[in-house]
């Protein structure tokens, strides 16, 4: 008897933290959020079940415009991050040896020692009307009046790219390091040039790293609140800002919960689409 039950009990005990975590911190809040999102306030203290909160989202162009805008800019951020991070990662993983490699890797990590808030304020110091870049351009005679570089879409993307860079570099360096140099040499030896070796050998090999980096960066950008608000100002129109406004400013938790669910659906759909497009599976990229 004991022989049969003992391993079972052990398994249950081992699984317990995971199950509690899954249930209490993920499943429970989401079920509650979902219940909240399908609850409509018809009169003070009178509630009905229905999809009215979701209907509100589609009825008001500002909401779904913000929604689409957030998605597109997050995708753009992901692409820009990838384009910048790939050469950097390739350089760290394949061109450098020994100490310089570690130094450069730590340099990528360095900005993350300070909080995101401080880092974003750093960008504001650089970019605002009376900031360093604007002053420098005037001093150099390249501009005849102060330039406001904050509160534009480009600024938001710059800030988001900067914030997410590390999360792209780490998986890329890891996958690129696992690519044996002899594959690259064989690529050249058999007649390939830099472009074809990159396209046929390096990128296919790095694909799991590219996809996992992209997923993380996309999720971080989509769910980011601080950077779009600070660098984009009042007109940043980021979807998380809408959720915040519903919950905190308007105290409309039902609407906020519906928005939260819509954001979850959006990110799931785009990640799924990205995986399909790159012919990767989630287990491959995360494993």
């Amino acid at each position: 008897m004991t022989n049969k039950t003992a391993p079972k009990l052990g398994l249950i005990l081992l699984m317990a933290p995971l199950l509690i975590w899954l249930f209490a911190l993920i499943l429970l809040p989401h079920v509650d959020m979902f219940m909240l999102s399908i609850t409509e306030k018809v009169a003070p203290r009178v509630y009905e079940t229905g999809l009215g909160n979701y209907g509100e989202f589609f009825a008001e162009p500002l909401y779904w415009n913000t929604y689409a805008r957030t998605a597109i800019m997050s995708i753009l951020t992901t692409i820009v991050t990838l384009v910048i991070a790939f050469p950097v990662s390739y350089y760290i993983a394949k061109m450098l040896r020994g100490r310089m490699k570690a130094v450069l890797f730590v340099l990528c990590l360095l900005p993350f020692w300070v909080s995101e808030l401080v880092r974003t304020f750093g960008w504001m110091i650089l970019l605002r009307e009376t900031g360093i870049i604007s002053t420098f351009l005037q001093w150099a005679g390249l501009a005849d009046q102060p330039i406001e570089m904050l509160y534009t879409d480009a600024t938001i993307v710059v800030g988001l790219v900067y914030t997410s860079m590390l999360f792209m570099v780490v998986p890329l360096v890891t996958t690129l390091e696992s690519l044996d140099d002899s594959y690259i040499e064989a690529g050249y030896d058999l007649g390939g040039n830099g472009f074809t070796v990159m396209r046929e050998i390096v990128i296919p090999h790095a694909m799991p790293g590219i996809v996992s980096g992209c997923i993380v960066v996309f999720m971080l950008s989509l769910g980011n609140y601080l950077t779009p608000i600070l660098l984009g100002g009042k007109d940043s129109l980021w979807f998380t800002e809408q959720i915040y406004a519903q919950f905190i400013t308007r105290f409309n938790w039902e609407q906020g919960a519906a928005f939260g669910f819509l954001l979850l659906i959006l990110s799931s759909l785009i990640v799924w689409g990205g995986l399909k497009l790159s012919r990767q599976t989630l287990s491959e990229t995360m494993g």
Binding site: D180, S182, Y183, E185, A186, G187, E200, I201, P204, H205
Partner: peptide, 8 residues
């Protein structure tokens, strides 16, 4: 180690 491309 032959360096046959594993992705092909």
């Amino acid at each position: 180690h032959l360096a046959l491309f594993p992705m092909m």
